[in-house]
Design a protein around this nucleic acid. Structure first.
Lengths: 339, 339
DNA sequence: ACGCTGGGCTAAATCGATGTAGCGTTTTTT
DNA sequence: AAAAAACGCTACATCGATTTAGCCCAGCGT
């Protein structure tokens, strides 16, 4: 089980390994290899089921046909679904995926980048953590193809594929207002990163637009790394301190889940006593009683765009970076209806 | 951004690359390199932040420090959570993970194995599909370290880490009986693979044990590759044709979810009119109204065991294969209680 | 007949790390 | 004092594919 090498083919065909390499890399014409020899080599390669040794090839060319995918948490439904799309799309271009989860921890992210670097991945798909900008710039100055996802750094000119988070939050909030909710709060993650900032901004903008006063007491910003227990405790504490609260927008999928749990343990009736909108769709949101309204991300499209943009960077180095902002869809369900 | 090589270190230290290699691989003693030189090299390597080029090393040694993980569907919560554990555990041993989803399609699985093979992964973690036994045996005869997960082939002597599916189903069914349900059905996947066969067997055994007659009309076996719509249609059709049905056991997480949806669209009251037990825990099961009883898999333990067993195969080639069967936990909730 | 061009192919260097075989010097053994 | 062993280190081949430089031969023009 050693594996067929280019030498084996060369031997069988009675030519040099060089010739075989040329032919198998489609350079037969360019390198003026005769049709005869070319055909013969192709045939032998096919018969022996030759697969180039990616290590040797990578060592020589510096290309490994591998991309690194760094997500926040592969166990999170959103990232897992996305990872699958990315994997499938990358496969179409002959690339494999090495992945890792940051847990939104910059040190872990740096570690992952380090590993991916000395594994010589050809390109990076990164869900950046807060202070990862320096590393991103390092990668850029090394001309490494990369695409940020889910969030980006406004001060860095890189490619990225993100949701229009502002619109997502704006639509969700506007919807709650239209449904007649008066005092609307947001529960989000304490983060200055774009995805969270935009969601908060969209929320605030929708309130402003409808002349509803906003003040900080309407926004609860929780630390990302709390456990479920603490999320629940904090959320309950918050919800009970806002006076006359009648609706709340949870800015991430896991906050939405914790939110549902919290509200229920408070004994409030979702929809009637308190309107609720979550982020990212989920089986739980669809099947909960009452069902939960949410801002849904077009996962398939996000994944396709990510890979497309990355492939562009890989195949046309130096071409301008691309920014893709995709539209969310508000999935209206029972949790935001008083009737 | 070329990267520091062993040569750079050799030059700076005024020694040969060979010496550097020996020192950096901890063979200084063995190869009788003086303390002085050894220290010096270590220092320089640290200062230059030398990271060995894994491609070159892999090409030479045949080891890539990479393992292939083949799951059924990375977008499925169970596999995603497991993947994360596997990634973390593998990392502890210095291994990275290349992954892929089979969709339970043997052709896709073969394709993945092919890719992993010529990427020269050092070991395989495989959730096998139905007819993958030949390929598994091929890997074995090539002495490739491998661990099967979630299911295995009884006629192949390989390492595996699986749940005690029989006990999971047996406990779930016994629980339903103890709760006073009389006519209990099972909805499962039409598959001869161990995980499904054991779940069905456990179900039947529990009935037998309590003198409850079992016949085929109590078991609905659905094709894996149906879409959600079809699952719902089929499940509804089945549930309505079983006479006096008062409880049902869904043998996978996605069937459980489809089951909940179906039963609700039939307007039956879960728990009271119909008892329900699912497989694998899920946020949805925990937060559904009523909450859903399920057979829960110890994901962290499964992941740890998988990596441990694989590392054993990696580090002690030829040592006997290991079979790990872990106990499920029945999480009792409201969906299986009539009171 | 001589140089020139271009067609068809290959030798050899290269990527970076590893590991065997072995070289020159000093120390020990007999 | 000669032989053997120990010591400390290095030259070189190797893994498999790629790629540069260039060899040899045939046909061309003059």
């Amino acid at each position: 089980m050693k594996g067929i090498s280019i030498k084996d083919i060369a031997k069988q065909a009675g030519v040099s390994p060089t010739t075989v390499s040329f032919v198998l890399n489609g350079k037969a014409k360019e390198k003026r290899i005769s049709e005869q020899v070319s055909k013969k080599i192709q045939k032998i390669a096919a018969r022996l089921k030759y697969k180039p040794n990616q290590l040797a090839r990578g060592l020589r060319t510096g290309k490994t046909k591998t991309i690194g995918l760094i997500v926040e948490d592969i166990a999170n439904n959103f990232f897992a679904s996305l990872a699958k799309v990315v994997e499938d799309e990358a496969d179409k271009y002959g690339y494999k995926v090495l992945y890792g989860s940051t847990e939104d921890n910059t040190e872990k992210a740096k570690g992952l980048l380090e590993v991916l670097k000395y594994r010589q991945v050809d390109g990076y798909i990164i869900t950046p953590t807060k202070n990862l900008d320096k590393e991103i710039e390092l990668l850029q100055s090394a001309s490494k193809p990369l695409v940020l996802m889910d969030r980006y750094f406004p001060h860095i000119n890189s490619s990225y594929v993100v949701l229009n988070n502002y619109k997502g939050a704006y639509d969700a909030t506007t919807h709650l207002i239209a449904q007649g909710y008066k005092k609307i709060a947001i529960v989000t993650i304490a983060s200055e990163q774009t995805q969270m900032k935009d969601r908060l901004d969209g929320f605030v903008a929708a309130l402003k637009e409808h002349k509803i006063p906003f003040n900080k007491s309407l926004a609860k910003r929780l630390a990302f790394d709390l456990d479920r227990e603490s999320f629940n405790t904090e959320i309950k504490k918050f919800l009970t301190t806002v006076k006359d609260l009648d609706a709340v927008f949870f800015a991430t999928n896991y906050l939405g889940i914790a939110g549902i749990e919290s509200i229920r343990s408070l004994g409030w009736e979702i929809g009637k006593e308190i309107g609720l909108v979550g982020f990212d769709d989920h089986d739980l949101f669809r099947l909960h009683s009452p069902s939960i309204t949410c801002v849904s991300q077009p996962i398939a499209s996000i994944g396709k765009n990510i890979v497309e943009v990355l492939m562009n960077e890989l195949n046309h180095p130096g071409s301008p970076s691309r920014q893709v902002v995709l539209a969310p869809e508000l999935v209206v369900r029972a949790s935001s209806s008083r009737t």
